[in-house]
Write a protein that binds this DNA or RNA. Structure first.
Length: 277
DNA sequence: CATATGTCCTGAGAGC
DNA sequence: TGCTCTCAGGACATAT
């Protein structure tokens, strides 16, 4: 499940496309229902052909490939990955970008579940179409005061609030559980009622965990979904203290047993001793 | 406006 | 063993 660290790893992993000229953008034959691609692939190919990649950036949980005045926005959602060749299999390759020249270079958008999307915009449309009304400040860039201000705006639980990309961009289900455990905050606590000192612990945990997860190239879960750009697994799953550890002893207090609850149709894991209501 | 719920999709794993 | 069923969750559409 690509969240900020996984998407950041994808961006860094394909940095070698910067400076290269695009030969062709295509959709390989695929037996599954096609993913959402806007505009049609022929138009994307036409607009990007012979353009040189000027940069790759992350926008929340999206990968943005800049070329000319265009921005190709890859949204992995649940099971999408951005790779340099070497996909886990060929049948789930949803988009391919071939580059001019040598060494041979090919970027793939691979997505097993097919919920991911591809969208080509003009650079100057990004704010209006992607950011405005949808994305708050990035989790790794937001100042502490604004973090507090935004989390004080909602009566929802802190876990659910952290997943709202309009409040803070980049945090997803896995890292939300991890950072609440690190900050010793109960996931069902009403966001607006959390004290400033507690929010400081959460803010610091968020920075530390996201940065560490990037250093580990993200979390690769048992389903194998999510790998880095070379199709190697990340290693942050070995650092998880609560996620997917239901019934196991808490690694912090060693007494509590990790519980799983469901909030907004998503699993939350926490230690009832470390994270008291 | 804020919040809650349903939906998309495939494959792994559980359960019978 | 082989089948069916449930579940995984990011982001958006729709409902409350």
């Amino acid at each position: 499940m690509p969240e900020l660290p996984e998407v950041e790893t994808m961006c860094r992993g394909v940095a070698s496309i910067i400076g290269r000229k695009i030969k062709e953008v295509s959709v390989p034959p695929c037996r599954f229902r096609p993913i959402v691609i806007r505009p049609a692939i022929a138009a994307i190919d036409e607009l990007l052909q012979n353009q040189r990649v000027s940069g790759v950036s992350r926008l929340g949980k999206r990968v943005v490939i800049h070329a000319g005045a265009q921005a190709l926005i890859l949204q992995p959602k649940m099971s999408g990955m951005v790779l340099l060749d070497q996909p886990p299999d060929d049948e789930h390759v949803r988009l391919r970008i071939d580059f001019v020249g040598k060494p041979r270079l090919r970027l793939l958008f691979w997505d097993r579940r097919g919920l991911g999307t591809v969208e080509l915009l003009q650079d100057n449309e990004i704010h209006e179409r992607i950011v405005a009304g949808r994305l708050g400040p990035d989790a790794l860039a937001i100042p502490f005061d604004e973090f507090c201000e935004r989390l004080r705006q909602t009566s929802r639980s802190i876990k659910v609030a952290l997943l709202d990309q309009k409040l803070i961009a980049g945090v997803g289900n896995l890292y939300a559980s991890e950072m609440l455990h690190a900050a010793k905050i109960h996931p069902a606590k009403v966001s607006a009622l959390i004290s400033r000192p507690k929010l400081k612990l959460l803010y610091d945990a968020m920075q530390q965990i996201l940065i560490s997860a990037i250093a580990h190239e993200g979390s690769t879960l048992s389903d194998g979904t999510y790998r880095n750009a070379l199709n190697d697994p990340g290693s942050y799953q070995n650092e998880h203290r609560v996620y997917d550890r239901k019934g196991l002893a808490c690694l912090s207090c060693s007494t509590g047993m990790i519980q799983r609850i469901v909030q907004a149709q998503r699993s939350t894991f926490f230690c009832p001793l470390c994270q008291r209501a």
